[in-house]
């Protein structure tokens, strides 16, 4: 599904990714772990198409198609979704309005019909209910005054509604208490399917107790330095990242 080859990226003359290679298969949940500053968030931004990052070399293939030349909105329409570590506030734009605009923009980009309002409402209500999002929150400005947990739930709701094929979760567990973590994880697990792949970026092993990965990759100094099964996460939890900090240097 996603294949990253020899990716070199810099921002403002600072090299962040140094020849990163990563493959995530269809239906797979891959976890990326690593110490602060190892380039985890940069990787998620580069896949999603944030400007400011200069790709010096390498390629990112989504189902065989190089997406590096595509704008962020085109990548979204192609099925890339990034659940932000810090979701942005859009004052004055009701959450419901935003959801509809996003869903229809993607449908349009794919040459599909716009959603009928009743159909849209039905989907949103059902999705919100599963995630314990109260209806009145959908009328408020997107993420404005939402708690950390509410913002993360909203990200998962958007993910569920937009039905992407490649989902990136950037530190989705940060700022969540144990109950919220469980709700969010359940939401993600419900979306696992043979046609969809996930890249779960996390600092701690905790999240992976709830979203159990198929593979675990350790990042350090801008590349993947070790890959393994889910047991690798437990190993990291026990030993810390100290070994890897020196490994790649």
């Amino acid at each position: 599904m996603l294949e990253i080859r020899n990716l070199h990226v810099q921002i403002e003359d600072k090299k962040i990714l140094n020849g990163l290679n990563l493959t995530v298969h269809k239906g797979e949940v891959a976890a990326i772990m690593g110490p602060n500053g190892s380039g985890k968030s940069t990787l998620s931004y580069v896949i999603a198409g944030k400007e400011d990052y200069e790709v010096l070399d390498g390629e990112i293939l989504l189902d065989g198609e190089n997406i590096l030349e595509m704008e962020a909105d085109a990548r979204a329409a192609a099925g890339v979704f990034l659940a932000f570590q810090y979701p942005l506030e859009i004052p004055g734009v009701a959450t419901m309005t935003f959801l509809k605009a996003a869903m229809n923009a993607q449908r349009k980009a794919r040459g599909e019909e716009e959603l009928a309002t009743t159909d849209f409402m039905k989907r949103v209500r059902a999705g919100a209910e599963k995630l314990g999002i109260p209806q009145d929150m959908l009328k408020r400005g997107l993420n404005v005054g939402f708690s950390g947990g509410e913002k993360k739930r909203m990200e998962i709701l958007q993910m569920a509604l937009l039905e992407p094929r490649f989902c990136i979760l950037d530190e989705t567990d940060s700022g969540l208490d144990i109950d919220a973590l469980k709700v969010v994880s359940d939401g993600v697990n419900a979306l696992r399917s043979p046609d969809r792949a996930f890249l779960v970026i996390t600092h701690y092993q905790r999240l992976l107790n709830y979203i159990v990965p198929d593979t675990v990759h350790v990042m350090a100094h801008g590349k993947v330095v070790k890959s393994g099964g889910k047991e690798l996460a437990l190993e990291l939890e026990a030993n810390g990242y100290a070994d890897y900090k020196t490994l790649a240097a």
């Binding site: 999603a48 400007e51 909105d73 979204a76 979701p87 734009v93 996003a102 923009a105 993607q106």
Partner: peptide, 23 residues
Amino acid sequence: FYCMQRGLSAEEATALIVNGFVK
């Protein structure tokens, strides 16, 4: 970037943010 990541074009994103501002 947040709006575009959800599929809105740059123009659509600007219109949406501005409309929210003047609501």
